[in-house]
Design a protein around this nucleic acid. Sequence first.
DNA 1: GACATTACCATACACTGTACGGAAAGGAGG
DNA 2: CCTCCTTTCCGTACAGTGTATGGTAATGTC
Lengths: 251, 251
Amino acid sequence: MTAPEQPPESTAEGRRVIDLLWNPEPPPGSRGPRPRLTLGQVVEAGIALADAAGLTQLSMRKVAAALDVGAMSLYTYVPGRDELVELMIDTVYAEHDRPAPGLGWRDRLESFVRESWALYRRHPWLLDHNQSRLPLGPNVLDVEESLYAALAAAGFTGADTVAAANFVRWQLLGAARAMIGDEAEARSTGVSYEAYWGARSSFWTTYFDSERYPTTTAIWEAGGFDDASALSLDRLLDRLLDAVDRARSAT
Amino acid sequence: MTAPEQPPESTAEGRRVIDLLWNPEPPPGSRGPRPRLTLGQVVEAGIALADAAGLTQLSMRKVAAALDVGAMSLYTYVPGRDELVELMIDTVYAEHDRPAPGLGWRDRLESFVRESWALYRRHPWLLDHNQSRLPLGPNVLDVEESLYAALAAAGFTGADTVAAANFVRWQLLGAARAMIGDEAEARSTGVSYEAYWGARSSFWTTYFDSERYPTTTAIWEAGGFDDASALSLDRLLDRLLDAVDRARSAT
DNA sequence: GACATTACCATACACTGTACGGAAAGGAGG
DNA sequence: CCTCCTTTCCGTACAGTGTATGGTAATGTC
């Protein structure tokens, strides 16, 4: 009967996460009381908390407490916890340097991998997130573009580029989860790698049967599980770049 | 002063998860009332719930309700939720067929990948778990052994076997998370892949800038993101086996 | 029959995300 | 200035979560 019922685009509640990602600080609707916070502050507080204690410890109440604000006030800035995490992810992706486009594909790919690794090291909670649906934010897309661009420079086109990018991503994520994720878990739970295995050392003498697991035993005896070296980033990089090179010349 | 204070190994509370994994049904201490359940029933109920609704929906109260038992009764059988999940994982790994050792390495590796894929498809909640610390259960170790054995048959030794196994695992997990995880998320949240992207379609017209993301745009225009085919299991297998073959002859 | 052992579980506590509705701040229009 | 509308802030509440505690009752051994 009255005004047209268009969705309240400008209200905080009505803004979807995509708008928050691409237009984080819209011109202040001049009416109500001044906001005490900015979206950026909320996101930064979330990042600080996740860096220190992990994603599972990130709660709306704790973020609010860190900002000296009531818990429900956060919902003025952010639709909910999931969206906050998406914003946190895109925000830290801004730290991911893009390689200079003048370099060759190998250097650019190496730079990409090292930057990602460093990012995961600074923000291990990124590894907890299912990376198959990364937020569609500007910084995330910038980083994806830089990966695609490096692979295009290597000669990949079309779907081959996507396949090569997935290859790089999955190796990187797998290795990072194995190494950095373990470190982070050790730090947050206080159970170190050695303590974890030490507590399970009785397993090896009590239950492990070297006749049931001959190959595993052989690898163990050959020192194949003394991983500190096998799982190094440099070694991963060597294998990764060579594999990409081979796939490149294969097409 | 009285009896030696050895840890109560035989009581339910004192049994660690390793003991539950390897010795799930110890001889009944004949004293108290008969248990109404078995550990196996508890684990199966957990698996059924996770299959139907995902790991986030798995709660002690719901598992208990499915078994028509009070929530706290579960703690007679299982130390806690985390341990229940570990037991669930090892239990479903029993479904993972081990390839006949007579076959060549290529067939065995293909069998391994297809079996893992089918397992993830039946139990997508496996993909939610951080696979870098799989439970040390008999079935998990059997599967790992079969992978190592296939790679040993391909000529890998020592740390090279571990590196190759990691390569296979990470590609497999990455692809499975991208495909199956998305399917499962769509099923449990009711938001299909198309609906998810449809809801974000305004993004492409509103925010996406083809000049900022030229390579991404070019791939898109070449149809590189029409993934249904690019992400197929067969294609993954081809690439995977070829890559292993090349790494094999490279050493 | 007394006692030791064990299974079962009601209650409670400390958390979580967030729906709801009220209070109050502050600019805009009269 | 006063009123009104918009917007921020947030106390309270609800439906969940994992699990610590401690009581009750069932069962075997002595």
